[in-house]
Design a protein around this nucleic acid. Structure first.
Length: 271
DNA sequence: ACGCCCGCCTGTAAGC
DNA sequence: TGCTTACAGGCGGGCG
């Protein structure tokens, strides 16, 4: 999401929306298409913010265009003459020319326009978002404090947006590998050194992931604004490496279901 | 209040 | 080959 936010900053900030086309019924579901379109057409995009996995496009009308890609959503920069691919649900055309398109095969993603005042009541998740290590790394003392207040096992905790903003299934596994910790450890079982390793792993893994423009898996669902895949998957140590040698201890990486999510870890050196 | 688990969808790959 | 099944990066809501 951070890679896409940076792309939007370059590509759409400063542009004015000329027309908006919405097709399909699920992508715009909090308001009518008509209201959605009328709040966008004529507005200028003044800035792009990311909060966790949400993108917020600030409009010069004072409104905010909220975008969440969920599992399969893509935002793509396009020209009007470009072929419209299947599952394109929204096309925004700018007065300066060029388009921003929203493509989403599984239709879990959504877009809506709201106001700064209503934002957190519309998206309660945003009202209680945890620390964002990409945005501003928190102090280690505060991290330890918040960690010790939780009783959830490490993997679901890392994926809990109210604890850590922006981390999902891939990066929770990568962070735990980096920290040398098992997914089912509890915060209370960690030594001071282990807490410090976890903290460092969170900051490092996310920093590296952003530096390499995110992780694109074999299904190629995540791509940047230009349809270009990320490169962090080449540096994955655990995720999708089942059976392959751990790069730290050469043991085969294991795969397990944890809370319906595929979880990859080294059974030897993650303790 | 919390943790767990399902449902939302379509596409793809594995398995028979 | 063709059909069926499992699974996929996230979240909200209903359940116990």
């Amino acid at each position: 999401m951070e890679t896409i936010r940076r792309g939007l900053e370059r590509e759409v900030v400063g542009k004015r929306v000329k027309t908006v086309q919405v097709t399909g019924t699920r992508t715009i579901r909090r308001q009518t298409k008509k209201v959605f379109i009328s709040k966008l057409e004529g507005a200028k995009i003044n800035g792009v913010e990311r909060r966790g996995k949400y993108l917020l496009l600030k409009l010069d009308t004072g409104d905010i265009l909220v975008i969440h890609l969920r599992m399969s959503g893509q935002l793509l920069r396009a020209q009007a003459k470009d072929a419209v691919v299947k599952h394109t649900h929204m096309v925004m055309t700018f007065t300066q020319g060029g388009q921003l398109r929203f493509v989403d095969p599984r239709t879990f993603g959504e877009l809506f326009v709201t106001t700064p005042e209503e934002l957190t009541s519309d998206v309660t998740e945003l009202a209680d978002l945890g620390m964002d290590p990409v945005d501003e790394p928190q102090s280690w003392v505060k991290f330890r404090e918040q960690l010790m207040r939780r009783t959830t096992k490490l993997k679901p905790l890392l994926m809990d947006q109210s604890f850590l903003a922006g981390v999902g299934n891939i990066y929770s596994d990568e962070i735990l590998w980096e920290a040398g910790l098992r997914h089912d450890r509890t915060p209370q079982s960690l030594s001071t050194m282990e807490v410090r390793r976890l903290y460092r792993a969170i900051v490092e893994v996310l920093h590296e992931a952003v530096k390499h423009r995110g992780s694109t898996l074999s299904d190629e669902q995540y791509v940047d604004l230009h349809g270009k895949p990320g490169e962090f998957q080449l540096l994955h140590q655990a995720y999708a490496r089942e059976g392959q040698a751990c790069r730290r201890c050469r043991s085969p990486i294991a795969r397990e279901k944890v809370g319906q999510r595929s979880t990859f870890y080294c059974p030897n050196c993650q303790i």
